[in-house]
C-alpha cells in the first residue's frame, strides 16, 4: 500500500468532499486508485486532481466512502494505483458530460474551451459546475430544481453536437447508455468512463468485467465504437457474489 498525509479537505456539495494529498507519481485523467480505510474496506476512486498535488472527490454512499468523507487534513490515507487507462486527446472543442459524482473523474479534462453538461439529482448535488464559464454550461437536475429537468441526455438535446470534436462522459451506466443511444447515429465521437464493482483493481477477480474486458486494466474508459458493439454494456453486470444481474 502507498500512504500519504492529507493536505486539505474541500467540501464540494453537502455529501461530497475533495481530499488533496501529495503523491510523487505521474497519473492520467481517467485513472483511479483503490483506496483503503483500514478496518472498513477498500473501494475504487477516480483521481479528480492529477497535477503535482493529487486528489480524489468522494460522495458519501457506503461504509467505506462514508469513512473517506470523514477524513481530515493531517490524517493518513492508504491506497494503491494508479490503475486504468485514460481518455483520448483532441485538438478541437470538447463536451464534458458528468452525472453525479461522475464529474470527479472528468475534472482534469476541463479547459477554457470545454462545454459542460453537469447533471445531478438536485441542485445541491451539482458537482464542479462552477469550473465552467457561464455561457459554456448546461445544468440538468432530475428534480428540476435547477436547469433542465430530467437526466443528462436531456441537456445534450439542447446543444448542437456538431460543434464538438469529442465528448467525455462519466456517470452511472444507465446514464451512459441513454447517451450512447442518443449519439449512436450522430457524427460526434465520445469516450465513456464506466463505473462497475471492483474488488481487486488489477485484472484478477473478474468482478468489473464487460464483454471479457476488465474495466480496471483495459478500461475504465471505452470509446463509443467499442460500446456500440457490446453485449453487456447498459444491460447486465456481475454482482459482488458473481451473479449476473440486470442493470
Amino acid at each position: 500500500m502507498i500512504h500519504s498525509i492529507i493536505e486539505r479537505v474541500d467540501m464540494e456539495t453537502p455529501t461530497t468532499v475533495s481530499i488533496l494529498f501529495p503523491w510523487d507519481q505521474d497519473v492520467l485523467p481517467g485513472q483511479f486508485v483503490m483506496l483503503w480505510i483500514p478496518g472498513v474496506g477498500e473501494i475504487p476512486i477516480s483521481l479528480s486532481h492529477t497535477g503535482r498535488i493529487k486528489g480524489i472527490t468522494v460522495k458519501k454512499f457506503g461504509p467505506t466512502s462514508t469513512a473517506i468523507t470523514e477524513l481530515k487534513a493531517g490524517d493518513r490515507i492508504f491506497f494503491r494505483g494508479p490503475y486504468g487507462n485514460t481518455f483520448r486527446k483532441t485538438e478541437g472543442k470538447t463536451l464534458i458530460v458528468g452525472g453525479g459524482s461522475g464529474m470527479a473523474g472528468l475534472l482534469p479534462l476541463i479547459t477554457q474551451e470545454s462545454h459542460g453538461v453537469v447533471s445531478a439529482r438536485t441542485k445541491e448535488e451539482l458537482l464542479f459546475a462552477d469550473r465552467f464559464s457561464q455561457e459554456k454550461l448546461t445544468i440538468v437536475t432530475d428534480d428540476g430544481s435547477m436547469g433542465t429537468k430530467g437526466f443528462a441526455v436531456e441537456g445534450l438535446k439542447t446543444l448542437d453536437l456538431d460543434e464538438f470534436s469529442l465528448m467525455y462522459i462519466c456517470g452511472p451506466e444507465l446514464m451512459l447508455k441513454s447517451i450512447l443511444d442518443y449519439i449512436a447515429d450522430k457524427e460526434i465521437d465520445a469516450d465513456f468512463s464506466l463505473e462497475r464493482h471492483m474488488k481487486c483493481g488489477i485484472g484478477v477477480c473478474d468482478s468489473c468485467s464487460m464483454d471479457g474486458l476488465q474495466l480496471c486494466t483495459q478500461g475504465p474508459v471505452f470509446p463509443k465504437s467499442a460500446l456500440l458493439k457490446s453485449d453487456e454494456f447498459g444491460k447486465e453486470r456481475i454482482s459482488i457474489s458473481g451473479k449476473r444481474v440486470r442493470l
Partner: peptide, 13 residues
C-alpha cells in the same frame, strides 16, 4: 479463481 466468473471473460481467455 482468476478471471473466470463471467462467461464472456472465460470466452476471451
Amino acid at each position: 479463481g482468476i478471471l473466470d466468473e463471467n462467461g464472456y471473460t472465460m470466452k476471451k481467455i
